[in-house]
Simulated assay, not measured.
Amino acid sequence: MFTQHTILENVLICLRDMVPLSEQVGPDSDLVNDLGLESVKMMDLLMKLEDEYDLSIPINILMDVRTPRQLANALVAYVEKSHGAV
């Protein structure tokens, strides 16, 4: 079963694999300004998360997301729809 906490931890794990200075990755890190994720890396992140949760995540989810915590919170609805209540 997935919880908001496990979703956040999975987002952080995926990011730490992608970011050179992975020790700087935290729940409230700015994905662009702090971690340097440009559009291609953001798409890679979404693809990793899609594989992790076996679901399709619309790209427009990124419009209102600036931190890993916000991304995890936005993913909850998609995970719930696919796997049941979080």
Rank of each mutant, 00 (worst) to 15 (best):
L71H: 01
A77I: 02
D17W: 01
M18Y: 05
R66P: 00
A77S: 12
H5S: 15
L62H: 03
T67D: 14
V40A: 14
F2C: 00
T67R: 11
I57D: 11
D64W: 00
L45H: 03
V32S: 08
M1V: 08
M47Q: 07
Q24T: 10
L71N: 01
N33D: 14
K81S: 13
E50I: 03
T6H: 04
M63Q: 11
M18E: 13
D64F: 04
V76Y: 02
M42C: 07
S39P: 06
L15R: 02
F2G: 00
D51A: 14
V76F: 04
F2L: 02
L31D: 00
L12N: 06
M63I: 12
E80C: 09
P20T: 09
D64M: 10
V79H: 10
C14W: 00
V65Y: 01
C14F: 01
V32A: 10
L49S: 10
I57P: 07
H83F: 07
A85M: 04
V32K: 05
D54K: 13
G84Y: 01
K81Q: 15
N60T: 09
I7P: 00
V76P: 04
S82K: 14
M1N: 03
R69M: 09
M47P: 00
N60G: 02
C14M: 04
M42F: 06
Y78W: 05
N33H: 05
M43V: 15
L31F: 06
I61Q: 07
P58V: 08
S22D: 12
Q70N: 02
D51Y: 03
P58D: 13
I59A: 15
